[in-house]
């Protein structure tokens, strides 16, 4: 008989591990990845490949050779960051820009703070925003999806970009909408200009539902973002439909669904309690709408999430779970 193991209780453990949770996130992202490859073709595959590969390699190299500690590649968090970064970029982004994004995401936003669990801001979003302000040309050359093996893309504006452009030129929302030929059914399924991950709302929502069913994330953050965006846009649109876009348009366009389902719900950079999550979501929704309506960028989800990320420690302190038997 071998020696008995002795340890403090509990003696059994749940099946969840960091790796299994991250694997679930990767699985949840697969529909969106498949959709984006279908719509954008092999170029999107290149962006995805470069992004994931460089995130994983950078994480390995930095942890092993610079920080001189055990590599954390095995927990798959770098893979998640890689996929999310790729889904946040237009498929036309050159490979070296993607690589720089990965360097900022993994090297600066994640490992500088001490690696998984320690970062304040969502790494993929920091990478994305860094590229957005550093390489605006590449980052705003949106292209309409042309399908797998389709001919080269035609440059075009995203719906949000078109709206902002149009408003600057003095047109009303109705005119812009009519000109762009936007249709909500089409938005839900796909076929709009934008980042890869913005193309198919249904695929992203399917992933979100998978995560909720698997109890990887709780739905409150995402739902409160959607609710806030809908409410804020309803109020503004109700007041002046010629100047402000309507709720459905705001829910379905841009990176809102990707951000609300996958970026805002990142464990590390979101509050832990349910009510903290709701406040966090309301903040993101509100800031997103303010940036969209009044900011100089057409899209504000990334900025809104990053700003609210900074408030997470405060939210965690203010919103604690009710303790048993205490007021």
């Amino acid at each position: 008989m071998s020696k008995l193991i002795v340890s403090p209780n509990p003696h059994i453990h749940s099946k969840d591990s960091t790796q299994s949770l991250m694997r679930d996130v990767v699985i949840a992202l697969i529909p969106a990845v498949i959709c984006s490859v279908l719509f954008y073709g092999w170029k999107e595959l290149l962006v995805l490949g470069v992004s994931v590969a460089s995130c994983v390699l950078l994480e390995y190299a930095i942890t092993r050779y610079m920080l001189k500690r055990a590599s954390t590649v095995g927990d798959l968090s770098a893979v998640v960051t890689g996929i999310l970064l790729a889904l946040n970029l237009p498929y036309t982004t050159p490979w070296w820009v993607v690589f720089i994004g990965a360097v900022v995401a993994i090297g600066v936003a994640k490992l500088t703070f001490g690696g998984i669990g320690q970062n304040i801001w969502n790494p993929a979003l920091v990478g994305r925003v860094f590229l957005l302000v550093s390489f605006p040309t590449y980052m705003t050359t949106w292209a309409k999806p042309q399908g797998l093996f389709g001919i080269d893309a035609i440059s075009g504006a995203t719906p949000l970009g078109a709206v902002q452009e149009g408003l600057l030129q003095g047109s009303s929302i109705q005119e812009i909408m009519a000109e762009g030929g936007y249709d909500y059914g089409q938005m839900l399924l796909a076929n709009l200009g934008g980042s890869a991950g913005e193309v198919c709302a249904l695929a992203l929502l399917a992933g979100f539902i998978y995560l909720c069913v698997r109890r990887v994330i709780k739905p409150w953050i995402t739902l409160s973002i959607f609710a806030t965006v809908a409410l804020v846009s309803l109020i503004f649109w109700g007041v002046n439909p010629a100047r402000f876009t309507d709720p459905a348009f705001n829910l379905l366009t841009g990176g809102l669904i990707l951000g609300a389902c996958f970026m805002a719900t990142d464990y590390v950079t979101s509050p832990m309690s349910v009510w903290g999550g709701v406040i966090f979501g309301v903040g993101i929704g509100f800031l997103t709408m303010m940036i969209r309506y009044f900011g100089s960028y057409p899209e504000g989800v990334s900025f809104a999430i990053l700003i609210m990320n900074s408030f997470v420690p405060l939210i965690n302190m203010a919103f604690k779970q009710k303790k048993y038997g205490r007021k």
């Binding site: 193991i5 003696h11 059994i12 320690q118 309690s273």
Partner: peptide
């Protein structure tokens, strides 16, 4: 296999412990 603890890794701040605590602690 049933009982051996897996090696400790970094906290990912998932909050599962706080959700599980029946006394509402963190």
């Amino acid at each position: 296999k049933q009982t051996r603890r897996a090696p400790e890794s970094a906290c990912i701040r998932c909050g599962k412990c706080a959700d599980a605590c029946p006394m509402g602690l963190e």
